[in-house]
Amino acid sequence: MDTREIDTRNYTALLKKYIETQDEQALYGAEQISKSFIKKNILPEEFVNLHIQALLEIYPDLHDKIKPSMHFLLEAMISYGLAHQEFQNLREKQLAIKSEILVAARMQKMLLQSKIPETDELDIGVISVPANQMNGDYHHFVKGKDGTISITIADVIGKGIPAALSMSMIKYAMDSFPENIMTTDTVLASINRVVERNVDPSMFITMFYAQYKPDTGKLYYSSAGHEPGFYYSSRLQKFKDIESKGLVLGVNPDASYVQDELNLEKGDIIILLTDGVTECRRDNQFIDRTEVIDVIKKYIHLPSQEAVNHVYRHFERLQNFQLRDDFTLIMIKKQV
């Protein structure tokens, strides 16, 4: 006897019991059976049919008018059955899409992972956390043959999958540039042309690109409309904005950029971020940039990686662990 047959028997017994005693237990039993039927994908009209069979077994001499009424009900249930089947199909499809996105997110993570270069000169820490499955923030480090360390941080506007796809474009375009012989402004001008040709008109990318040259201790940088980072001077014990003018990528193919430079001394710190950090809200009020500095100050004595982890946790708590935007924070300390 298969399980369905057992259910049928149970149902008949429960129905009989309920008709005779109106016992609540029987109702509970009916609920259990219906749950098990749903799991087995048994359609509503089959359920009605089961009811008819059970009724006929209990009352073989069922009133003539009742029988056709039951068949009438059975027909009426067929549309519900179709709706139920459609719901099942959608649920399966949804699961498939969900797992596809998960695969894509994992692939994106692998594709975009950037190892912090090993260097005695700089202590680098980075944290990047997506608000949804796919990250619209991008960061990348490269150490060149001559020891130059290049640092990229970017924010793709437009969230989710389209943003994630454009990120791969940035990565491949950046990888194709000849190593470190280009100045930071020409790198941005080149990547801007690639982006402009390839994005939707309402999409754009902000990017900050820097090269640290260990032989001179200088940091060269350019910005394409990116949220300004902070420079901490250990000598003055002061923070200031790293201002650099430049149009966001993807708006004008002929945009040009400027290269600025900073002389880094021992103990100086560079902080780069995306607007997910400065756009944190607390009780619907935005925090301002001085508040971001105050939080960074609290952890600045720690090694860079620990410091950025702490800062992230602070803002995560502040927003009740619900990120509204992707969050990326890079801290670079000059060690020697």
């Binding site: 506007i157 437009g158 008109p201 999409m203 754009f204 966001v248 607007d275 756009e279």
Partner: peptide, 10 residues
């Protein structure tokens, strides 16, 4: 926000 900025760019 930046999505709004995107509308003006468009």
């Amino acid at each position: 926000d930046s999505t709004g900025l995107g509308i003006f760019i468009n």
